[in-house]
Every structure is written in C-alpha cells, then in structure tokens.
C-alpha cells in the first residue's frame, strides 16, 4: 500500500494533470485549486519538482525564453498520473466513509 501524498505534492500533480505548466503557473494554479487556502512558495514548488522529477512522476515538457527569462514547462508523466489517480481513489474512499458515518449519525442521533 502506498503512502498518502502530502498536500503540496497532491496539488502540484493536480495542477499538471490537465496541461503542462511553468513554475509560476503552478503557483497560481495551486492557489486557484485550493480556493486561495494554499499559497505555495517557489522554494517549496521547486523542492517538490526536484523530487517528482527524480521519481519520474513529472518531466520537463519544453523551455521558452520570455522577456529574456527562462520559462520551463513541466508535464505529468504516465507514472505520475497513475499515482495521482491512486491518491484520488484513496481519498474518495475516505470521503465516502466519512459521509456515510455522518449520515448515520444524523439518522440515529449523536453517540
């Protein structure tokens, strides 16, 4: 059984799930995905990307130079997508269990 992903890792993989993104795009997308609750910083994102690249979950898609600054796009690999899917399944199972028990609590009164 695989360990649960940490929240920043989960959010970075989610940000890359639909399309390749550059570092700043990941920062902004994570903020949007979390409804503004999570604001990752560059140090955290690039430490995570370093590890995700080593694990083969994320790869460099392409590079651009915009206003004389390097912009590198990252994409989710098939391995990364499979890991994210496994995490979503795990979280869904937990969420369903919590919902079920909350409904039982409301139906049968508080314990």
């Amino acid at each position: 059984m695989t360990d649960a992903l940490r929240e920043p890792t989960f959010l970075i993989l989610t940000a890359l799930a639909a399309r390749p993104q550059h570092g700043y795009g990941i920062l902004r997308d994570v903020e949007e995905i979390s409804g503004g609750r999570v604001q990752l910083r560059a140090g955290t994102v690039y430490t995570a990307l370093d590890r995700l690249r080593t694990d083969g979950w994320v790869a460099v898609d392409r590079e651009e130079v915009v206003e004389s600054r390097l912009r590198r796009y990252y994409r989710l690999t098939d391995t990364g997508a499979a890991r994210l899917e496994a995490e979503v399944t795990r979280m869904r199972a937990h969420t369903l269990a919590a919902e079920k028990r909350l409904r039982a609590r409301l139906a049968g009164g508080t314990a």
């Binding site: 700043y24 994102v45 690039y46 990307l49 390097l70 912009r71």
Partner: peptide, 9 residues
C-alpha cells in the same frame, strides 16, 4: 533551475 526560479521569484 536557478534562472528559472529567479524568474518565478
């Protein structure tokens, strides 16, 4: 990633 990080920062 130094230059890339600098751009993001």
């Amino acid at each position: 990633t130094g230059e890339e990080m600098l751009a993001v920062l």
